[in-house]
């Protein structure tokens, strides 16, 4: 069968959602941010809630998220996205509000805003991209950098005694009563992508039902910061990040998952 006979509109099974703009993504080749953006927009698209969705972009690599996500968005100051989202949601309780934040933004400078928005049970969705490094500023140590991991500010590897421990903020947040749904996923394989998308769907459902805050961590790669090829970085992530940041549900329907 000729390829031309296959490539016809009626045979289309997958194309980029229209809720992603045509602006070329500013992310490095192979970076999981693009996939995470697209999944989020696919969910908004498929739920038919674009007219009622307001997103909040962070400071970090995804500071320009609003260049790519074709929905109403606000750019927050570094770490303050959960407070900005709180302000939006409190005034518009029937709108869907999400934040999209990296590990430096959410788990270092914005820890207070993150924990308090979660603890108040703000009825929002937080998408947390954890790649264990500050990508935007050129690969410095993040609160989530693994012990021994090399970054430009831990050039001989993270020494826990001197630099402190990596922060599992997702597990911490799961303890808070205002948080309804907490889960950790990845976007580097087709299977991981499908699971993440399901989780994002669930998070927006939780928001629709006004049950409290949903928190989705996506463990992702930073091949530039980690100084690896994209595919190699995904393998390194499986071997090193996943044992520490274990994938799976942490809290469902307000109940901690016992493993």
């Amino acid at each position: 069968m000729d390829i031309k006979e296959i490539i016809k509109p009626e045979n289309l099974v997958y194309k980029k959602t229209g809720l992603m703009t045509d602006n070329p993504l500013s992310y490095c080749p192979g970076c999981g941010h693009g996939t995470a953006h697209r999944l989020l927009m696919e969910v908004v698209d498929e739920l038919g809630i674009v007219e009622d969705t307001i997103g909040v972009a962070p400071v970090g690599c995804s500071v320009l998220a609003y260049d790519f996500m074709n929905v109403d968005m606000q750019g927050a100051a570094h770490g303050r996205a959960p407070a900005v989202a709180t302000g939006i949601k409190r005034c518009w309780p029937d709108k869907y509000v999400f934040t999209y934040q990296g590990d430096g933004d959410l788990a270092a400078i914005g820890t207070a805003e993150t924990i308090h928005a979660c603890n108040r049970g703000e009825n929002i969705t937080i998408i947390f991209i954890n790649n264990g490094i500050y990508g935007m500023t050129g690969g410095q140590m993040a609160p989530t950098t693994l012990p021994g991991m090399r970054t430009t500010t831990s050039p001989y590897g993270r020494e826990v005694e001197m630099m402190g421990n990596p922060l599992k903020i997702t597990e911490l947040i799961a303890q808070l009563p205002g948080v309804h749904y907490v889960t950790r996923h990845a976007v580097h394989t087709p299977r991981a992508v499908r699971k993440t998308k399901k989780a994002i769907f669930k998070a927006f459902e939780v928001q629709k039902e006004k049950k409290g805050l949903s928190f989705i961590e996506i463990v992702s790669n930073c091949n530039s910061g980690w100084k690896m090829e994209p595919v190699a970085s995904n393998i390194w992530m499986e071997d090193n990040m996943f044992p520490f940041y274990e994938l799976g549900d942490i809290k469902i329907d307000g109940q901690l998952v016992t493993k």
Binding site: A77, A83, G87
Partner: peptide, 11 residues
Amino acid sequence: VASINMLYGAA
């Protein structure tokens, strides 16, 4: 810090 950023969001 949070209040001014809540203001930002709502404004």
